[in-house]
Every structure is written in C-alpha cells, then in structure tokens.
Amino acid sequence: MKTELTPLFCDVDLARRIEVAEAQLIEATALAAHGRLGDGRGFVIPIAGGLASFADDDSPFNKVVGLGFGGLPTTGELDEIEQAYATVGAPVQVELPHLADPEIGIVLSRRGYELESFENVLGVAIDTKYDVTLPDGIEIRPSGDEELDVWLNVMADAVAVPDTQGVPWREEFPRDTYIEAERDAASADITRYIALLNGEIAGGAGLRTTDGIAQFAGAGTLPAHRRHGIQSALLFTRLSDAAATGCDVGVITTQPASKSQQNAQRSGFSLLYTRAVLVKHLEAT
C-alpha cells in the first residue's frame, strides 16, 4: 500500500467545504431517523449557514453543525432552536470549528453554553490513484444491504471496546442506540466495507463522497484483530475509491491524541482544525 500522502493546509474556504459536507451528512441521517420513527418529534432547522438536528432520543446526530461561515445566528434563530430542543427534552450541542467566526463563540457563551470537549478534523489531499496492495491474509470488500445487520454489529462490537489512548469520548451511547443511529447513517449515501483477516470478519468502515470531499465515516476493528494492519487497509482502500470518484480532499474526525488520530497522521493526514463542543443544558434554557 502507498503510505505517503500529500500534506494539506486548511484555509477558511476548505473548512467551509468540510462543514457543509458534515451538515449534509447530519441532515440526511436525521431525515432517515424521522422516516424510521414516524413520530413527528424530529427536526432539521437551518441556522446561519448550518443546521440544528434532532434525530432520535440520545442520538449522536442531535447537534448543531455548520455554523461559522454563514453569518452570525440571530437571537430569534437561537431562541427557535433552543425551544425546539427543550420540547424534545434534549440539550443543545453546538460543534463549532475554531476557524469559524469567533464572534459566534462569544454569543453562545453569553447565552449559557459551556465548553465541554473538543474533536479534531484531519485531512489529506487525495491523489489521482493509489496502489492498494494489501498484506497477506487481509481482504477488504464492499458490504451490501444483505449484510447490513452484520456490518452494524461489527461496528458496534468494535466501538464497545475503544482504544484508551488520548482524550476519552465525552459521550457514550447504549449499543441499541448506536446501532439504530448507524442504521440511519447508512442510508445517507455511505458506502460500507467489511475487512477480513484470514477469512474471518475483523472490522468495518464507511465512506461518503460529496462535492469532492471524502468523509471517512467511521472505521472499527474487532479487539481480537487489532494491530494487524486492518485500519490501514481500510483507510487506503477507501482513499483509492475516493480518488476514483474524483474527490480531492479526504477527512477524518477523531478525538484529540487518540489512537485513531495517531494512525491517521502516520498515514499522512494533517490536523486541519478543531471543533469546540459547546452545550446548553435544559436547566440553562
């Protein structure tokens, strides 16, 4: 496998492209959840170039994304989304890039939002072609709809035993909640992959491509098969597929100082920017 990638510099325009792609993914996933549940509680509300999403109770897709590149949110807009989240009994979670308009952070702080965590966005300039020669015993193949439940369970099993390096995830989700959220995300034009080690399922991953941005939508290796090159094989297979679709930028989101970030940077990804996670809890609304 090719292991040297082109470093990438992130300006405001690139950050905007990435955040637009992220907002599109969140919206598509939330709408899939709304269709699955059919209870009329969910919402997707545009706000200042981004959107506020509520997919399902305790869903990882309940968040405000894409702010910072379309002007300041107005008092009326913030009132609207805060009331919408209060109605469904959920806090307001804003993921704000540090390259966004800094005035937004000030506005949110004055309204009672608190900084709770960070996440890193890493990226790489995608080459036109990759030589993906996998190590002996490793196979990466597409995973179709006929084995969606298998893929979902593999991903859930991998997430259930995370690497402990770096800053831990602030959020933890019950297995059933995670599986249903990933089921919704799978309908958002995400290509799924299964990794095999000596014929045995060892991990899985997802890839979404839009407007030249390749979103590496999660990857996991089952604990028994870690440290055998599965993650690298999944990464370069997806890079090759993204190149074939004409994407010019690949993006991964990780926890700060995590094993996932370390693996991505070893493979040539650069830290592009950090998102601050700002939360307003129900008692503060």
Rank of each mutant, 00 (worst) to 15 (best):
V94W: 14
R208N: 11
G212E: 08
L272E: 07
P97A: 09
D157S: 13
E147T: 15
D136T: 10
I126A: 01
A23W: 00
D11R: 11
E4M: 00
A219F: 02
T87N: 15
L235I: 09
F69S: 05
H34C: 04
L115K: 15
L78V: 12
V161M: 05
S109Q: 13
I213H: 04
G218Q: 10
E114I: 05
A181Y: 13
R275M: 10
Q24T: 06
A224N: 01
T128I: 07
P135E: 01
T191G: 06
G212S: 13
A217N: 14
G203N: 04
K280T: 05
L148P: 04
T74S: 15
F69C: 08
D176L: 14
C10P: 04
R238T: 12
F269P: 06
R192T: 07
F61W: 11
A181K: 10
Y178F: 15
P46W: 02
G206R: 10
F9Y: 08
S109C: 09
L25S: 07
G246F: 09
D211A: 15
T3D: 00
T128N: 11
I26C: 09
I252E: 00
F236E: 02
T253D: 06
P168K: 13
E182C: 10
V277Q: 07
I194D: 00
R238W: 08
I213D: 05
R266N: 10
G250H: 01
G204W: 03
P7E: 00
V124S: 09
G166V: 13
G199R: 08
L78C: 09
D241I: 14
I104D: 03
A242N: 04
A205M: 06
A15D: 04
A244S: 15
A90W: 12
L5T: 02
